[in-house]
Design a protein around this nucleic acid. Structure first.
Lengths: 146, 146
DNA sequence: TTTTGTTGTAACCATTGACATTACATCCAT
DNA sequence: ATGGATGTAATGTCAATGGTTACAACAAAA
């Protein structure tokens, strides 16, 4: 199972914001054009980022503001804002293993800490990258493109 | 998006094998009972593990053999056997970003290495745990249970 | 104050994947 | 041969993803 494209779309949105906000009004239509999807899809993702407190969206006039310094906002925060994971567990268990079976009733004790360690190592790596990396990285790429 | 329960079910299967194989013939019915699911679900997962070369399943008579030493088989190998991920990428992109847009045509250059690093850190952690840990871990738990 | 452009959302729809279930052909040791 | 397994096709249900249309709410500018 792959992690849904909404996460990479969110990173795409932030990158567009930084690259274009000087010279363009970055609307959901504009973003949908760059990402090649539907404006409503963008608005739904913007709503999630807004609910997480990461951005402010101006109604009526349009326009998006990032609420905090770019170096402070990590990929992990974006991921958390976007992915609605049940009690935060990356790995899914089959519900209700048989409590009559010694293995069935202890499988969680056995696996939980190991799976948590795996999930943590992914999330820790996510915390190493910030929106500032997106801005600088894209500016670099564009400077070399010409 | 959570990783499907088939992965934890596979780990459950291996644990049952080690705990019960001495005294019971471990069939798909037996496993389905411990996990609390349908035998056909178990057989499909067994088929994946078989295709990956991790186990041998005896037709007719029934019974499952692990093909290699337990210390050699890591969670990562089980994960790879079970999760059919398109070209191995954990993170999904929206298809066909707009090549007319500077961000759209460069979003992969910008993100690919970072996302790969995140995925790698998860997979590296997965390589730290083996089927031997499952066997020993469960034996420990059961010894304390009495 | 009306117009214009934008966001917020509801209401759908199609597709896909996970998980479940039934049914039956196939296999193999006894 | 037969009894107990596996292999697998066919089908169903459910939830999530991604898309689309439509329209109300809103705010700035004409």
């Amino acid at each position: 199972m792959q992690i849904s494209s909404r996460f990479t779309v969110a990173l795409h949105i932030f990158t567009c914001l930084e690259v274009f906000k000087e010279n363009n009004k970055v609307t959901s239509d504009f973003l949908a054009g760059s990402i090649n999807t539907n404006p409503v899809i963008i608005r739904k993702i913007l709503a999630q980022l807004k609910n997480a407190g990461l951005i402010t969206v101006a109604r009526g006039t349009g326009g998006i503001t990032v609420n905090r310094p770019l170096e402070e906002i990590t990929f992990y925060e974006v991921y958390q804002a976007i992915e609605p994971i049940e009690n935060g567990d990356l790995f899914h268990f089959h519900e209700a293993p048989n409590p009559e079976c010694p293995v069935g009733r202890n499988i969680h004790s056995l696996l939980d800490s190991k799976l948590k360690a795996i999930q943590n190592s992914m999330e820790d790596e996510m915390r190493k990258y910030t929106l500032a990396d997106l801005k600088i990285g894209m500016q670099d790429i564009l400077a070399k493109e010409i």
